[in-house]
């Protein structure tokens, strides 16, 4: 059997990433997520608890991985989150990220972007600007770059987590297991 090293993060975390926690933290958790994915929504309930447990020892990075064949509204949700980030900064991005997951059932099957735009307003952005950014696909290329960096790193579905650059194939649904895996990766 021939094999290369599978599941290694190929695009290092940079200032362009959406990041929570101290830049110099010894533990970096990167999530490739799809805002319309129900499993990612579940992970959204777990990650903040993990972060509370590890405090300043970890930072969390979110990268887009919209699976558009199965989640037709995922790309617009991701683009809207980027539009909010451009208008309202990183705080706005995370607010939008949280709102999209919390209200996922209200927009996942929607025939238009109305609910996503309302959430963008709530996150501090001008919904007309978001709508025009969606029309012009202004952030689509950026999201595709996120997506391909994930593919090249061995993302195999959503969510996929990398702990200090290695794909985590363990159980993220349990806070204890997740915290133990993160702690084990600390130098």
């Amino acid at each position: 059997m021939t094999t290369t090293q599978q599941g290694t993060l190929r695009s290092p975390v940079t200032e362009q990433d959406h990041m929570l926690g101290p830049v110099g933290a010894p533990i970096t958790l990167v999530e490739y997520g799809d805002l319309q994915c129900p499993h990612c929504r579940r992970a959204h309930g777990v990650v903040p608890r993990v972060m509370r447990r590890l405090g300043d020892r970890m930072r969390f990075v979110f990268r887009h991985f919209p699976l558009t064949e199965s989640h037709p509204n995922a790309l617009h949700a991701a683009e809207a989150a980027e539009s909010v980030a451009a208008q309202a900064g990183e705080k706005g991005f995370w607010k939008m990220h949280d709102l999209l997951y919390e209200h996922q059932p209200e927009w996942e099957d929607a025939p238009d972007d109305a609910r996503i735009l309302e959430l963008a307003r709530e996150a501090g952005a001008d919904p007309d600007v978001v709508a025009s950014d969606l029309d012009s696909a202004r952030y689509e290329e950026q999201i595709k770059e996120n997506f391909m960096s994930g593919v090249r790193s061995g993302v195999n579905g959503t969510p996929t987590f990398f702990i200090n650059g290695r794909r985590f194939d363990g159980d993220w649904t349990s806070v204890d297991t997740f915290v133990a895996a993160l702690e084990a990766a600390a130098p």
Binding site: M1, T2, T3, Q6, T8, V151, S153, R167
Partner: peptide, 19 residues
Amino acid sequence: RWSYLSPVGVNPGADGILE
């Protein structure tokens, strides 16, 4: 030119194929 056997419960992703 390349073959890979994944543990049956682990989705191998696409990085190896693209390489």
